[in-house]
């Protein structure tokens, strides 16, 4: 039973991270129907920004809490700026082009950002500072669920709650929902659609940046390529939960994380990805729009 709980906790941590990144995919898809392949790179840039800020601040001897908050803020702001700029440069000019064009543009952006970080920073793995300390009160259960796991779970939950409030309760959220339902109609009733799209990219990037900071301090290392696999997995999570649906992204992330964790624990880690992607295929066969996705009649 202990073993089951251990695996469950590992799965939750993994799933929470997937969910944070998957939200960016699903929100962008919901608004403009684009799969933003550069999203994994935004996550990577968030991790790098927090790495640089945290390293510099720790040289100046700032207290740990200040470092975490400032590094997190810097990562959020910087990644959002990247997300915003990527949309303006690579997607906005293609708004009325065939669907395939922005998709290719997104892949190009992803390759560009990876190589940009590779050249501007380094190809080596860098040690990420321990931003989340080992809490003393966690010690009795540290072998099952560590301090970083708890922090990741709590932070993810808080981010989800804030996002839900923003989308359900604010004017911007209402405009986002309207744009996602029908862009032309939203424009007709006076919503500045371009601004709403930018806001969506900014929110998605901010969430990815938080994910980058959390996972980097959980595993203690970063390099320019970490966005690729995380991005692929998060995209899978988004599709699994129903792309375009926000609760779906969260559910998809958790289901994927738990599946991987249990596959490793009870079968073999050799088959971790086999199980994860078999699950995806299985769910899409029986529910093509994903777990919580709404069935679309529109031809793609």
């Amino acid at each position: 039973m202990d073993y089951f709980i251990e695996l469950f906790c590992s799965g939750l941590t993994r799933g929470a991270i997937y969910a944070l990144i998957a939200l960016g995919y699903t929100m962008v898809y919901g608004i403009i129907g684009l799969i933003n392949f550069a999203h994994g790179e935004i996550y990577m840039i968030g991790a790098f920004t927090s790495f640089i800020v945290a390293t510099v601040l720790s040289i100046y001897g700032f207290p740990l809490l200040a470092i975490v908050v400032l590094a997190g803020l810097a990562a959020v702001v910087w990644s959002s700026a990247y997300g915003y700029t990527v949309e303006k440069i690579a997607y906005k000019p293609l708004r009325h082009a065939p669907r395939l064009s922005p998709l290719i543009s997104a892949i190009g952006m992803s390759i560009f950002l990876q190589n940009y970080v590779l050249l501007a920073q380094t190809s080596d793995f860098l040690p990420f500072p321990t931003l989340i300390p080992e809490f003393a009160f966690m010690e009795p259960v540290a072998h099952i669920v560590g301090s970083t796991d708890i922090v990741i779970l709590i932070t993810t939950t808080i981010m989800m709650l804030i996002l839900t409030v923003v989308i359900k309760g604010t004017k911007v959220g209402k405009a986002m929902r309207a744009t996602s339902q029908d862009r032309t109609m939203a424009m007709l009733v006076g919503i500045n659609v371009n601004r709403i799209i930018s806001v969506t990219f900014i929110i998605g990037s901010a969430l990815a940046a938080v994910g980058g900071l959390l996972i980097a301090s959980h595993i203690g290392q970063i390099n320019f390529f970490i966005g690729f696999l995380a991005g692929i997995k998060a995209f899978t999570a988004a599709v699994l939960g129903g792309i375009g649906s926000i609760p779906g992204a969260v559910l998809g992330g958790l289901v994927l994380g738990l599946t991987e964790s249990f596959a490793t624990g009870y079968v073999s880690s050799d088959y971790e990805d086999v199980f994860a992607f078999s699950l995806l295929v299985f769910i899409l066969i029986f529910k093509p729009s994903g777990l919580l996705g709404k069935a679309e009649t529109k031809k793609v």
């Binding site: 590992s10 072998h143 595993i219 880690s269 990805d273």
Partner: peptide, 20 residues
Amino acid sequence: FEGVTPGAVDYSAIVQKIKK
């Protein structure tokens, strides 16, 4: 005797398995 996926975001499941 098992293989892990390079680049995965988290290795805690395999570590728990080693422990078990």
